[in-house]
Write a protein that binds this DNA or RNA. Sequence first.
DNA 1: ATGAAAGCGCTAACAA
DNA 2: TTGTTAGCGCTTTCAT
Lengths: 344, 344
Amino acid sequence: MAKRLTLADVAQCLGVSKTLVSLVINNKADAHGISLETQMRVNEKIRELNYQPNVLAQGFRTGKTKTIGLIVSDISNIFYAKIARHLEDYAWSKGYSVVICSSDENPAKEKEQIKLLLNRKVDGLIISSSLETKDTFDQLIDSGFPHVLIDRTFQDSKSPSVTVNNHEGGRLAASHLLAQGYHSFAIICISPNHLSTISDRSSGFTAALAEAGIRIPENMNIKVLFNNAENQIQVKLAELFQNKELPQAIFTLNNNLTTASLKQLHLLGIRVPEDVALIGFDDLNYFGFIKPSVSVIEQPIESLSKHAFNLLYRQIQKEIIENQECKIVLPVKLIIRESSAIAT
Amino acid sequence: MAKRLTLADVAQCLGVSKTLVSLVINNKADAHGISLETQMRVNEKIRELNYQPNVLAQGFRTGKTKTIGLIVSDISNIFYAKIARHLEDYAWSKGYSVVICSSDENPAKEKEQIKLLLNRKVDGLIISSSLETKDTFDQLIDSGFPHVLIDRTFQDSKSPSVTVNNHEGGRLAASHLLAQGYHSFAIICISPNHLSTISDRSSGFTAALAEAGIRIPENMNIKVLFNNAENQIQVKLAELFQNKELPQAIFTLNNNLTTASLKQLHLLGIRVPEDVALIGFDDLNYFGFIKPSVSVIEQPIESLSKHAFNLLYRQIQKEIIENQECKIVLPVKLIIRESSAIAT
DNA sequence: ATGAAAGCGCTAACAA
DNA sequence: TTGTTAGCGCTTTCAT
């Protein structure tokens, strides 16, 4: 790790100007009519000296950093971890790095993170936002800053977004449970209910139930805090159980809630699906092979990530994004397993 | 997002020099004997104008970026996702961002990533390395570049590292299974076996068995590829099963392998623990409540991350790290559950 | 087809 | 106690 080679060194070594070398490096040589022979000579030397441009200097000069920021509520939630992984792969293939931020469903923290990332001059932002309003993103739109909302979006937001059809997912879950003969239900969701995912999933679910003439009573609409889900689920479920008010079926609105619910049901000795059926939103590997296996609404995580990255990349490249591609909604899939088997 | 304010603007606004403002911003004012009153004035103005230093320019100038790089084999493996989350938290508390890279257990890719991150001038690196040799890290040591190895390390490496006592974990697993009365065993591990985690876990396991006079036959030492574990496990297990050669107990060397094995055992209709007992390395949430619940060697993930960050941070701060703290080995814990219950 | 030179915004050695 | 100034390494405009 001796003193780093600079552009000037390379230029001097070749007896040419820095401009020339710079142009070659940035593939602007042709456009400037640099002779092919010179280009070869330069490239040769660069390889020979193993010269690597100082990315910081480049970034400083151009304002571009070849870095994108990813903000999600919690990178250790496997759903977001998978998204991060896919995004990282696409980013890597285009020479981009990704910086991660977990917002903890905390709007203030998320805003700070956005500020930090902008300040760090990331070239774009992919966000699963916990914010209550779309203001912050409207500002980004106004300033033309490349960004895309993933997983969660806002009503009437102008920001490009990639989401799944959460409403339809809720409907699918409800229809399936109804078809199985269940007729009393509970929903378990997390508490800041401005989140588009949560509200769409639950509205889809209740809409389908309403069509069958069924309402979810207040005490069956269980809301728990993001960072205290397990405990709160246990308390609520224990309460229902003791009062012999258990619903026939439960819809858990994300994978964390599904896992937490399964755990607490198990601890309470409530059998699935005998005592209560269960269907979750978002699939996990283990749902498929445990006893009972767990029915879910599955989301196309890879596709979600791919579209998000493309949408972002095209903004960075200053390609115009057609209006109709700006709000991508991907289909979900009902996977029926044992946890929602025929009612007895 | 109008034209950004610069240091010069602030200085001009106050009728002072850039130096002054710069010193105040970087908390070097006192050391340079800047009067308290001036400091106040400067700070005031900065707040008033909502001036934010251009981090890129700062980074370019100082060579510091307030960014650390994290390289793991796969950020979507929940073990690494959790590590990433903890590191992110510590980093955030110190004003650092973290860039993630998944190496896919691919040494060439990992080297490229290290190169990229160094080139991006991250201030330090935390790595769960897939490399065969420690050379790359010796170079980092020689150049004094802050880094710490996490989870995996190298024999005789001089790099600071934080690992768990994998050997002891292997012993614990073996002793427990022996105590349960099992006496034929299989190990399932991933195939590039230069990884310190894998080799330590398996050597601990075999050492304890050896003391009881038991060897693991060649065909019970199942090695599968990182990116094709599930299939290969299925093939091997099916083979053993058909030949009626199933061992009495299986030790799976990481959480992915445990999950994959559980899945394939289930698909093959092999019952746990009746047909074969199982214990895994690394705990997962769902292991605790499924039927049968899964015995594991648990790792202190938070502590692992905390020590890693501290070790890195102190290097960045140029604090000397005492030799005895340079190689931290954390204890693991045996958690006995149903999958390794009394042999029948 | 190639080069000279002006900065980008900041820090830090050196002056005053 | 405060200010001047020289770059950090690169890109890019404008000459040649």
